[in-house]
């Protein structure tokens, strides 16, 4: 009798929990669908091949986003070219050579945590002063990319460090017992094994960089012409959207279309990354 009552109570509790969990999940999904739906509804009509390749006209109300895409790509390229080697090096140093008790390691880790929490506008102001004025780069893709690199470094280093730490000690022992030097152990054994973590870091970093406006406003500027070199100012996609939506009356349609392009790009990068990561994980192998 008592048992039956208890069983009933458990069933009701389970049911209640299930309802709460599902409602929360549905709520999150609904918000996402709402945003995406609104975006698609407003902007999908504007996305076409010519939109992707043409230059903006009439302050962006008409025309496309060709130069903007090129600038975005260049800014990202500069950002990754600088942050990847530095990030990997720092992560390897933290994970493999600076033990937890080490003062230097603790200092670097603490600085990174602080940096990761700094608002992007602060990075923007810093980049505007340091890269544009002190180093004399002016408003340029180079200055924007470097500023972004500073911004994504903490994320990149932390994920890559986790990647290195997740490599089991057996591999380090195997490498040492075979007389591999520390450098070869790092580059040929640990780095490939740490790849999934590194990729996650790159994706998070690229995602943050692509979505960035504040840090670029004062560094790469918003000239929407096709950039001739890395020293030209160039408008990134997110700044283009911001500009169209906030400052240009009648720019809403193209802002929506550009936002769709940005979302698709981010999604594509995410998918590609998870594909590569699962490839690494599944095969557990870096082909010869």
């Amino acid at each position: 009798m008592v048992d039956a009552l208890r069983a009933r109570r458990h069933r009701i509790e389970d049911l209640a929990a299930a309802v709460v969990v599902w409602a929360a999940a549905l709520g999150v999904t609904a918000v996402f669908v709402w945003i995406l739906g609104g975006l698609l509804w407003r902007g999908l009509g504007g996305v076409s091949w010519s939109f992707l390749v043409q230059a903006p006209r009439d302050a962006g109300r008409a025309g496309g986003i060709g130069p903007v895409l090129v600038s975005t790509g260049l800014i990202l390229a500069v950002c990754l070219a600088v942050s990847l080697p530095i990030g990997l090096g720092a992560a390897a140093l933290l994970a493999e050579f600076a033990s937890d008790r080490h003062l230097f390691g603790r200092l670097v880790r603490r600085s990174l945590d602080v940096l990761a929490g700094v608002p992007s506008i602060v990075f923007g102001l810093f980049g505007g002063v340091f890269f544009c004025q002190v180093l004399g780069m002016g408003f340029s893709i180079m200055a924007g990319g470097l500023t972004l690199a500073c911004m994504v470094l903490p994320i990149l280093i932390r994920s890559a460090e986790v990647g290195f730490r997740s490599v089991p000690d057996e591999h380090r022992h195997a490498a040492a017992a075979l007389g591999l030097s520390r450098a070869s152990t790092l580059f040929k054994v640990l780095l490939p094994a740490a790849m999934p973590g590194v990729i996650v870091g790159v994706v998070l970093g690229v995602g943050r960089a692509m979505a960035e406006t504040a840090a670029l406003l004062f560094t790469s500027g918003y000239v929407d012409r096709m950039p001739g070199s890395l020293w030209d100012s160039g408008r990134s996609l997110s700044i283009h959207i911001y500009h169209l939506a906030m400052n240009i009356s009648g720019g809403d349609a193209n802002a929506g279309a550009s936002a769709i392009v940005l979302m698709v790009l981010l999604l594509a990068i995410n998918l590609a990354a998870s594909f590569i990561a699962s490839h690494f994980l599944q095969r557990g192998v870096v082909s010869v």
Binding site: H173, A174, A177, L178, V286
Partner: peptide, 25 residues
């Protein structure tokens, strides 16, 4: 360690191809 090698309790091949496991060292 090149002259004095070691085998561990738990087999620990590197996460790479069979051939590369031997070629790397």
């Amino acid at each position: 360690r090149r002259r004095v090698g070691m085998i561990f309790q738990k087999p620990n091949p590197f996460p790479m191809s069979i051939r590369r496991n031997i070629e790397l060292p």
